[in-house]
């Protein structure tokens, strides 16, 4: 979520409600917020009912901070490692060993980019490297067929952002609900 739209109190309200229903909510924030506010920001998210945080630019833009920061965050709630095909094997091993949560794996190096890749290769790589950990895939998922294929290859779930945001931007709530419903159906069938 773009930083300019981030309203912790507002989001916290929803996180609180969802937590009371047994649904975990995870915040996605760029490092700049943690850099400026420190762990107080992370603690406020925890107090608002979030179960963990994803910091997608930590390993790319601030790698020297990760060894100290990840264990600190883990004392408060879950740090969700975000990896993608450009993440070196050694980094995946070391960051995985510092955390115990599920893993967010981007199929593309950046959101909204349509680069060619072999889904089977991509999924077998990460599932092999973090053996036994729950892995959810995101970045570039556009169709229900992709969702079916991803779940069939051993992923625990999918994260869909750009597509649904576009529906919202267009005011197309029907398409939003329809896609959401289809994903849920695929997910239930996969189980």
């Amino acid at each position: 979520m773009a930083l300019k739209n981030f309203k912790p109190d507002h989001l916290g309200e929803f996180a609180d409600i969802l937590e009371s229903k047994g649904i975990s909510t995870y915040a996605l924030s760029y490092y700049s917020r943690i850099g400026s506010e420190g762990l107080d920001f992370v603690k406020s998210l925890r107090e608002d009912g979030f179960s963990g945080i994803i910091v997608p630019d930590l390993l790319t833009d601030n790698p020297e901070k990760s060894d100290r920061l990840i264990p600190e965050i883990e004392k408060i709630f879950r740090f969700i490692p975000f990896f993608n095909p450009a993440t070196p094997d050694g980094v995946i091993h070391s960051v995985s060993s510092m955390t115990s949560s599920w893993i967010y794996y981007g199929l593309q190096p950046s959101t909204g980019i349509d680069m060619p890749y072999d889904l089977e290769e991509v999924s077998s790589r990460i599932l092999g490297l973090v053996h036994g950990r729950e892995v959810n895939f995101g970045f570039g998922i556009r169709t229900i067929e992709q969702v079916k294929e991803i779940l069939g290859l051993g992923s625990s779930g999918v994260a869909i952002g750009s597509l649904l945001v576009q529906y919202l931007k267009n005011g197309d709530l029907n398409s939003f609900r329809k896609f959401q419903g289809s994903v849920k159906e695929v997910y239930l069938n996969a189980e």
């Binding site: 390993l59 450009a86 070196p88 190096p109 950046s110 680069m115």
Partner: peptide
Amino acid sequence: VVPDLPRQLPPPVDRDENKSSIQLLN
């Protein structure tokens, strides 16, 4: 070498909101 680097390579980025130079590679 990328998978063997000690750190993750920062990805290429678009700095122009109106066009995707990364999509251009396609």
